[in-house]
């Protein structure tokens, strides 16, 4: 028994089919072919599935697809604009904040939210904010460096007159 959901994903209004038990992450991956959002666990521990729901970072494995009805979802695929990486993506690249890359979409989405709430976080604040995301490869050090670097880039772009980039 499927149900039609109306929602907005990465700026596009669309309709999708989902069973009541379908998780948002499975709808994104299986129905909408947005496979950048990953599944790393089955107990809401790893954060690999993090997306933005109306701008808030949520674990899409803990949201039912039907709960997204009428909401705005941003996934990792929706972050870069016109082929230009979002400053958070750019910073992860420059600081070598990823190895296998499986955790990366989740970390990037979490970071986008963090830096919106706290444009100049300390190292401790960053490590605390990333607690819900697991990375098995990097040892976190370069992820923390990437978040700091993204923060300073975003602060730069938020000076009066500068364009604020998406997310």
């Amino acid at each position: 028994m499927t149900q039609t959901i109306t929602l907005n994903v990465n700026g596009q209004a669309l309709k999708a089919q989902a069973e009541p038990r379908t998780l948002l992450v499975h709808m994104l991956r299986d129905e909408l072919n947005l496979t950048g959002t990953q599944v790393g666990c089955d107990t809401s521990q790893c954060g690999a599935c993090t997306v933005l729901l109306d701008g808030r970072a949520v674990k899409s494995c803990s949201v039912l697809a039907v709960q997204a009805e009428g909401h705005k979802i941003t996934t990792i695929e929706g972050l870069a604009r016109d082929g230009t990486l979002h400053p958070v993506q750019q910073a992860f690249w420059e600081k070598h904040g990823l190895q296998c890359g499986f955790c990366t979409p989740g970390f990037v989405m979490t970071t986008v939210e963090l830096l919106r709430d706290n444009p100049d976080p300390t190292e401790d604040e960053i490590r605390h904010a990333l607690e819900g995301n697991v990375c098995r490869c990097t040892g976190y050090q370069n992820i923390v460096a990437a978040v700091r670097s993204a923060a300073s880039a975003l602060r730069g772009s938020r000076r009066p007159g500068a364009a604020v980039s998406g997310g």
């Binding site: 947005l34 950048g36 959002t37 695929e77 990823l98 890359g101 979409p105 990037v108």
Partner: peptide
């Protein structure tokens, strides 16, 4: 990285 960072 570019493909991994953009979910592709």
């Amino acid at each position: 990285d570019p493909r991994l960072l953009t979910g592709r």
